[in-house]
Each structure stands twice: as C-alpha cells, then as structure tokens.
C-alpha cells in the first residue's frame, strides 16, 4: 500500500494545534503556562502509549518503565557522569530504545492477558530496581538536577531550562515533533499494518506480513517515544524519582489515551489536558483524586469506550486521523 500525502485539512488541523499552543505561550497566566508545559510532555508519553495500545491493539500495563528509562537515562547520566544536557537527552532516548527492544522481544512471545501481566511484572522489576540502587537513584526522594547544570550553551546558543518560557517552547518543540512523527507513522504503510494486526492478526499474517517484526517495531517506537518524554521531563523539570516508575504511571497513559480517544493522533493530548485539569480542580476540594481516576476509568469503559476524539470521529468527522 502506498503511503499517501497528507490531505490539507489534516495538515492544517495539526499545524493549527501547534500554532495555537505557541500563541498560548504569550498569553497564558503563569500557573496555566507551567501546567501546559507539563501536559505537553506527558501527552508525548501518552502518544507513545497510543502507538501500541490504540493502533496496534496491545494493552501494556508497564509503560512506566519506558518513561522511567528515559527519565533515569537522562537524569543519572547528567547527575552522576556530568554529561551535558543534550547528551543526557540522547542517553535517555537510547535507554528507552534498548529497553523496549529487550522487553518487546520477550513480552511479544505472549498475547492477550499474559502480555498485560508480563509487561506489568517487568515494570515492577524496574520499579524495585530503582529502590535496590537507591544509592544512585535516591529511591523515593529521587535526584534533583541543580539549576547550574540546567543552564548551558549549545554552540553559541544559550539555553536556560529553569526559565518558564524556554521550558514551554522546548516542550512544545518535542510535542510538535512527536505529533507529526506519529501522524506520519500511522498514515504510512507501517501504520496500516499495525491497524491490520489490531483488527485481525491471523489475517495480517496470512496476507504475508511479518506480524512479530511489525509488533516489535511498534513496541520499540512506542517505548522510545515514551522514553523521550521521560528524558525531557527529567531535564526540563530537573527531577527524577521512583514515583514515575510506579504502577500508577503505567495506568495514567492508558487513562489519558482512553479518554482522548485511542488510535487518534490528537486524542492523547486532549485526554492528558482534560484529566490533568480534572485532577487539578478536584484536588482543590478533596485529596481523593484517585477516586476520580477510578471512577473515570470505569465510566469510560462502560459508556464512552471511544473517548472524546474517537466519538467525534465516529459521529461527525470521519476524516480525523
């Protein structure tokens, strides 16, 4: 199948979202500005999850390990080895790619329920390892990257990661790159094969596709994107702790993607943004935000399984990617 060029309205929609986020940089009040920078990085995490869950139909309960691989890959190499920030980012992404390749090779031998449990267990091992090596990772307290480390030159170009505007624009840059990368990936023949595997793996195999290789590529792509989000998160916000490797951070991307709409390119961002504010607003009334997460999960699977964008696509706008 030939990968078609992007139709104009899809291009306009995605470019419009990026442009809108860029414009918001100049008008948003301080608090919401900071929230949006965080949400953009977390939605990169969700976009990575969406590749595997939404498009390939593989439900992983262990994606926190990929996010944390990027987080620690970047954080530890900068903190302990004194690497520069760009080198740290590259190290984080490389860690994610390596880990997702290894996990993919093992976990993809299983299917269905076993795949979910295996990914959950590998993530649990990763989580426990962050405690076992608490001497380096700081365990629950984590490590904090000092402000001096996060001010640096790239060539002649001075970057100050403690400055909110720089942080926002870098988060937006990563968000935009990953958004267009996923858009291109899912519209390519590779993306179509993933959807074919999701819909009917036996048939895809019968048609001559190497389903294992394609699923492995999906795991690696997904894990690497999640690690990118984690690495950027550690460097931009200067913190890496084992909370991010916990089971909760495997569940959250699932929730975000379900809410925004699985197998939609913009759904992860909408889901993350919506859920972040739901939790933010409710937590000013009650500390019981996990209750909201729980109820949201159940209501979503019961009444709203396609999520926000999925429903819009099914009812009104069939062209949405």
């Amino acid at each position: 199948m030939r990968s078609s060029a992007l139709p104009p309205r899809i291009l306009v929609l995605h470019a419009g979202v990026v442009a809108l986020l860029f414009a918001l940089n100049f008008v948003l009040p301080e608090y919401h500005h900071a929230v949006l920078a965080r949400v953009m990085l977390l939605s990169v995490f969700a976009m990575g999850y969406n590749i595997l869950f939404g498009y390939t139909g593989l439900l992983s309960l262990g994606h926190a390990m990929f996010f944390a691989a990027g987080l620690y890959g970047a954080g530890l190499s900068v903190y302990h080895l004194g690497w520069s920030i760009p080198a740290g980012l590259a190290a984080g992404i490389a860690c994610g790619a390596a880990l997702s390749t290894a996990i993919g090779l093992l976990a993809l031998r299983t299917t269905g329920v076993a795949f979910m449990i295996v990914t959950m267990m590998f993530a649990q091992v990763f989580y426990l390892l962050t405690f076992y090596f608490a001497e380096w990772t700081g365990g629950d307290d984590g490590i904090v990257l000092s402000q001096e480390i996060r001010r640096f030159f790239v060539g002649d170009f001075y970057l100050n990661l403690t400055d909110p505007t720089t942080r926002y624009l870098l988060a937006l840059a990563i968000f935009a790159i990953v958004l267009f990368a996923t858009l291109i990936a899912v519209r390519s023949s590779f993306g179509r094969v993933l959807v074919a595997i999701r819909e009917n793996e036996d048939r895809a195999r019968m048609l001559g596709y190497d389903t294992f290789a394609n699923k492995l590529a999906a795991v690696v792509l997904s894990g690497t994107i999640c690690a990118t989000a984690g690495a950027a998160y550690a460097l931009l916000f200067g913190y890496a702790g084992s909370t991010f490797a916990g089971v909760q951070y495997s569940i959250l991307p699932l929730l975000w993607v379900l809410l925004g709409g699985a197998a939609t390119t913009l759904g992860p961002f909408i889901g993350t943004l919506f859920m972040y504010y739901v939790i933010d607003i409710t937590s000013s009334y009650t500390s019981a935000y996990l209750l909201i997460v729980g109820i949201a999960l159940i209501l979503l699977v019961l009444f709203f399984p396609k999520g926000i964008l999925g429903t819009i696509r099914a009812r009104w706008a069939g062209w949405l990617p």
Binding site: L59, L61, V113, M116, I251, L254, L258, L290, L291, V293, G294, I295, A296, L297, I298, L300, V301, L302
Partner: peptide, 10 residues
Amino acid sequence: IVATIGLLYI
C-alpha cells in the same frame, strides 16, 4: 482489566 483498575483506585 481497565474497569478493575478503576475499582482498585476507588
């Protein structure tokens, strides 16, 4: 699975 995760949190 998703629903029982929700139940877990609740």
